[in-house]
Write a protein that binds this DNA or RNA. Structure first.
Length: 599
RNA sequence: GGCCCCGUAGUUCAACGGAUAGAAUAGAAGUUUCCUAAACUUUAGAUACAGGUUCGAUUCCUGUCGGGGCUACCA
């Protein structure tokens, strides 16, 4: 049990004895004491004052006395208004540092038992006719980081990707390539496969748009009708029909073009540093949902309309009916999601299934959960939509169809290029070889980008302005990486022998303000990890690490580590720096960001 | 129209209902004989508006204004 937990327990006990009533643990608010007050931890007493009908001041006093008597580490307390400030004995902080200074996995819970049920996290989920853009970057980084955070919090995790590789939209890019491609390939054009296919999708849409406009003008059709009647659309539907019928020519082209796309995606994932444990393809799974729906129909859980379409009645939750099978028996998006959920459940028997999907699909996931409930599926309650906000451009939402996107590859390349220029300008690392320099610049460039995105609360929309490049100074990834490099530099100078020496005895020496606040900061890393796992929020880690670095840089500026003449004090600061470095590294690892030895 | 989300310094982001709303950046002024100045210090600057709930509201409720999303036999 941590000290915080023991204090909370003591408070609970004390109040129980004083008032004869029990208080919920989560009603006991213990926060860090603000800098302007004396103490380490602060208990907010107001809520209890009200319940016990006693004035806050004296009550705080009484609780303080009780806690000091029960928790050994609490050596002093003071009351300010309705706040009870508790001070821990300095030796507590020192022993904390002593036990953790060399702990490479500080902040991480031990790996889970084999029999523990995993959490399945789906993220990325690309569409094979759209190259990845900034919106996908947020999805990928979030999803990947959340899996690392869950692992650090002691969960077993499976990372899955669901590739949307079939449907009418895929036929569109195929059709455009068949009609106008003249046999182009990634090899013949030197283009990345996903980009090449994406270009044909855009080409289809723009040609279709022309046809639609002409039909509206000449025949007076409505937009919808014109879209339906446009020759290109008719051909695309015919292509889909042939695909579903297994036409060898069509599936051959489909396989070939998909292979191009996957090669392109792989390159992008590699650059981003993202990996998966399992990749699902909708073309493999889309029929499964249909069977489940038919089964549900035969069990009387669903309704069939006169035209043959199948619906789920969600009026119990004040939602509309939801279509699950069209009149012609084909499936819709929701039908597929039912199938993939089932498959995932069968494959992993998870405790939870998390979907990292944008908040534009909030309604969809609400409905999915309800539909699975109607179907009586045991995993209906396991579905958890990790809903994140859009990345907006200054002119609004990104739209693939209109080509208004920030391309993922381009953006990453620009970041690396900026890193390269900055590294050269500063000229601090001449001793590295070309390969090392390249990988350093990659680390810094990607670090800046990833941090920029992950520091924002996932739930919130965020803005990206392409004309203002992402910063490398201030509240940024490179700032954190730089702090790490500084610390590593000290570690190298100190040498392994000194680091391995017994922990210094400081005697009666009082830690200075910076040392103490650094220690407290380090101490709260574990809590930050647990909180981030509970909230699915890498932003909490990002902001924690930043705060830690700011704290360290102030300390570094004000006090010397290796040049401190008092040897034991110098050793203490060395260990303090060491744990700071480890914590920065471990924190950044949870964000999928590397930290350098030098920069 | 109905439903949901969001309005915090010029800008981008913080703040379990808790003490004087934090940072960064842009602006102004400084710090290099000292372990990496991608750093540090000082300075100025914000809760859209109007009510309510409470010991206490950026946070919860209501209304107004502003922005975004969803509301497909698209995915």
């Amino acid at each position: 049990m941590t000290v915080e937990e023991r204090i909370v327990a003591a408070v609970k006990e004390a109040i129980g004895e004083m008032a004869g009533q029990t208080i919920d643990t989560d009603q006991i608010v213990l926060q860090k004491t603000r800098k302007e007050f004396e103490g380490d931890l602060t208990l907010v007493v107001f809520p209890f004052a009200k319940r016990l009908g006693r004035p806050p001041g004296p009550l705080a006093e009484a609780i303080g006395q009780a806690v000091a008597g029960r928790v050994r580490e609490v050596v002093f307390y003071n009351v300010a208004g309705g706040f009870l400030n508790l001070s821990l004995q300095p030796a507590y902080w020192l022993s904390f540092l002593e036990t953790n200074a060399g702990n490479e996995s500080y902040g991480y819970r031990p790996a889970p038992e084999k029999e523990q049920k995993p959490v399945v996290v789906e993220f990325s989920s690309p569409n094979t006719n759209k190259p990845l853009h900034l919106g996908h970057i947020r999805n990928n980084l979030l999803g990947f980081s959340v899996t690392r955070i869950l692992e650090a919090a002691g969960h077993s995790v499976v990372k899955v990707n669901l590739v949307n590789d079939r449907g009418i939209h895929i036929c569109k890019s195929m059709l455009a390539w068949m009609k106008y491609g003249k046999g182009e390939t990634p090899g013949s054009t030197g283009k990345k496969g996903d980009k090449l296919v994406g270009d044909y999708y855009v080409k289809f849409e723009s040609l279709l748009h022309e046809q639609v406009r002409r039909l509206i003008d000449s025949e007076g059709f409505s937009e919808e009708e014109a879209r339906n009647r446009a020759p290109l659309m008719v051909e695309a539907r015919e292509l889909l029909r042939r695909w579903e019928a297994g036409d060898p020519e069509v599936t051959g082209i489909w396989k070939m073009m998909n292979a191009w796309v996957y090669e392109g995606f792989d390159a992008t994932y590699r650059k981003m540093g993202i990996t998966f444990d399992k990749i699902y393809y909708e073309s493999d799974t889309y029929l499964l949902g249909r069977d489940i729906v038919r089964q549900g129909l035969s069990e009387g859980r669903l309704e069939k309309k006169d035209d043959g379409s199948v619906w789920a009645d969600l009026s119990l939750w004040k939602l509309d009916e939801k279509l699950l099978l069209r009149a012609d028996g084909t499936s819709v998006y929701m039908t597929q999601d039912i199938g993939t959920a089932q498959l995932r459940y069968d494959d992993f028997h998870p405790e939870r299934m998390i979907y990292v999907v944008g908040n534009e699909q909030n309604y969809h996931f609400d409905v999915l959960k309800k539909v699975l409930t109607v179907l009586g599926k045991p995993y209906a309650g396991m579905i958890c939509h990790l809903s994140y906000g859009m990345v907006e451009l200054p002119e609004g939402k990104m739209k693939s169809r209109e080509g208004k996107v920030v391309d993922a590859d381009d953006l990453m390349d620009e970041m690396v290029e900026t890193a390269r220029r900055t590294t050269e300008e500063l000229g601090k690392i001449q001793d590295l070889g070309q390969d090392e320099t390249d990988s350093l610049n990659h680390m810094i460039g990607l670090g800046a980008l990833k941090y920029f995105i992950l520091k924002v609360d996932p739930k919130k929309n965020m803005l990206f302005n392409p004309s203002e490049s992402i910063d490398f100074n201030g509240h940024t990834g490179p700032f954190i990486q730089y702090t790490h490099a500084r610390i590593r530099s000290i570690m190298r100078s100190a040498g392994t022998e000194r680091l391995a020496a017994p922990f210094p005895r400081l005697g009666e020496r009082i830690l200075n303000e910076k040392e103490l606040s650094l220690l407290k900061n380090l101490h709260s890393f574990e809590g930050a990890v647990v909180e981030a796992a509970r909230e699915f929020s890498p932003a909490l880690i990002a902001n924690y690490v930043y705060e830690l670095c700011r704290e360290y840089n102030q300390f570094y500026h004000e006090y010397s580590v290796l040049n401190e003449p008092d040897r034991s004090l110098s050793d203490f600061r060395l260990q303090l720096s060491r744990l700071t470095g480890l914590t920065i590294g471990n924190g950044m690892k949870l964000l999928g960001i590397g930290v350098p030895e030098k920069m």
